[in-house]
């Protein structure tokens, strides 16, 4: 966890998390398997986030779920992924290291983000515990609304650029 900038009533950190992406149709079977590993249910409603302690699970579209460990503590991820992949009809991939993770919190978090993205953060468009995929500073990102903070993820190769854009948005 690295503190990037804290000023102007906004706080930006960069993190190292664990993430897996599940591509599959919803089935009780696959839900049970996920539950047995992460103790969390797959949300059925699109864009919704289920949260249990440090694990969040969000549905990003009709056949994709993202599961993120906010403390980066989960063990045996690769073994679990191999187990899940034994099902021929699903694709589970470890996305932990290929993404950069940022946490932005504070009263002015929306104000700062409004400088670098067109995304509509109003409560009625982006309720608590929902997720979205959009462009931030012209880079494809996923945002997770965790009530008092947002988690932003993007491809790792853009990580440096997004970090600098976030710091710049707070400064100017």
């Amino acid at each position: 966890m690295k503190e990037l900038i804290s000023s102007n009533s906004v706080d930006v950190k960069s993190l190292n998390l664990i993430q897996i992406i599940l591509r599959s149709k919803f089935s009780d079977n696959i839900n049970q398997e996920i539950n047995s590993i992460f103790k969390i249910d797959l949300p059925k409603e699109n864009l919704k986030i289920n949260i249990r302690e440090n694990i969040i699970c969000s549905k990003s579209s009709f056949d994709q779920w993202n599961i993120i460990d906010l403390l980066g503590m989960s063990k045996n991820i690769d073994t679990n992924i191999d187990k899940l992949n034994r099902n021929k009809e699903v694709l589970v991939t470890n996305f932990s290291e290929g993404q950069s993770y940022f946490e932005i919190s504070g009263e002015n978090k929306v104000k700062i983000l409004n400088k670098i993205t067109h995304f509509d953060f109003r409560k009625k468009m982006f309720p608590n515990f929902t997720s979205a995929q959009t462009l931030i500073a012209r880079v494809d990102c996923s945002i997770y609304n965790l009530e008092n903070k947002f988690l932003i993820t993007c491809n790792r190769s853009f990580g440096n650029y997004i970090e600098e854009r976030l710091i710049d948005a707070v400064k100017y």
Binding site: T93, F95, G98, R156
Partner: peptide, 11 residues
Amino acid sequence: NVYLNSVTEQF
């Protein structure tokens, strides 16, 4: 029944 994922950044 086929799913695709970009893993360019994972390796």
